[in-house]
């Protein structure tokens, strides 16, 4: 095989182009705006109705005492539906969208080899996932600070830790969520290699997440709950205990990474053998 003269940093350039494409698209920016509004709405709602009855999402009761809890509440609210929706849209669009507009054939003949394209698309999707989670967290932090002030954090186990420690835990929660959503992102990328219809790929991906949520809500199916895609998404509450069960968190993360490995392999197998007729 003759070698090709490539420029150093070429992959970084490809990645940046991919990230700019995903983050610059108006539809995706609109999704981020919606995510940023969620914590604001919760803050306004909580601030305007001061009666403290229990019910509602986790941590809701603590928000008035400490704005940092708005971050946890907002992430809890967004995790089952909004974040999977955003991940599904971006992952589903990744390759099917390029196939649909015909740009895929021009990328492949540049050439961007198919393996490199999949890696770039995966990293682009992960970047958008991370930005989405961060948008919710940062918006929650700012709104919480503005509405309720930030204080030392009383953990679920009753101990109190410093505000810095609490923000650090929020950061770890965000990281856990990105890992947890990676499995779904990989499914979306795989679906995206099957079709040229981006909308169908998005709907399928989001549909699979919803399907998993539904299965998870049927007690009779508890035998399979442990391996469901969505089952451990809210497990990040673990990070708000004094004694963090890190073994459990790692086990759950490993499950999501296993999902990612399986579906990225399928996506690779599919993309590298695909006939591009669009």
């Amino acid at each position: 095989m003759s070698s090709v003269d490539t420029y150093p940093g070429a992959f970084w350039r490809l990645y940046r182009s991919e990230a700019r494409l995903v983050l610059g698209r108006r539809r995706n920016i609109a999704l981020l705006v919606v995510l940023a509004i969620v914590p604001l709405l919760i803050a306004v709602g909580v601030a305007s109705s001061r009666h403290q009855d229990s019910g509602g999402p986790a941590f809701l009761g603590q928000i008035t005492g400490n704005g940092l809890f708005l971050v946890f509440t907002a992430l809890t609210v967004c995790t089952p539906l909004f974040l999977p929706l955003v991940v599904g849209v971006v992952a589903g669009d990744s390759i099917a969208g390029e196939a649909g507009t015909g740009t895929l054939r021009y990328l492949l003949t540049l050439p961007v080899t198919r393996g490199r394209l999949l890696v770039a698309k995966t990293l682009g999707t992960l970047t958008f996932t991370a930005v989405s989670v961060l948008v919710v967290a940062v918006s929650g932090l700012l709104a919480g600070a503005a509405f309720f002030g930030l204080h030392n954090v009383t953990l679920l186990s009753g101990d109190t830790v410093s505000l810095g420690n609490g923000i650090g835990r929020a950061g770890l929660i965000a990281l856990y969520l990105v890992v947890a959503l990676f499995g779904l992102a990989a499914i979306g990328l795989f679906v995206s290699t099957i079709t040229e219809n981006a909308i169908a790929a998005m709907a399928t991906t989001v549909g699979l997440a919803v399907f998993s949520l539904v299965l998870d809500s049927v007690p009779q199916l508890s035998a399979i709950h442990g391996v469901l895609l969505t089952h451990n998404w809210l497990g990040f509450g673990e990070l708000l205990r004094t004694q963090v069960d890190s073994a459990a968190l790692l086990r759950w993360s490993a499950l999501h990474l296993a999902y990612a490995a399986v579906f990225l392999s399928l996506a690779y197998a599919r993309l590298t053998t695909k006939d591009v007729t669009s």
Binding site: S3, L21, T101, Y106, T109, L110, P111
Partner: peptide, 18 residues
Amino acid sequence: LASVLPRVGALIEGPAFH
């Protein structure tokens, strides 16, 4: 493909861009 296509410019079945 990887070594040859950089030296090939192509217009295939009409233009396609974002």
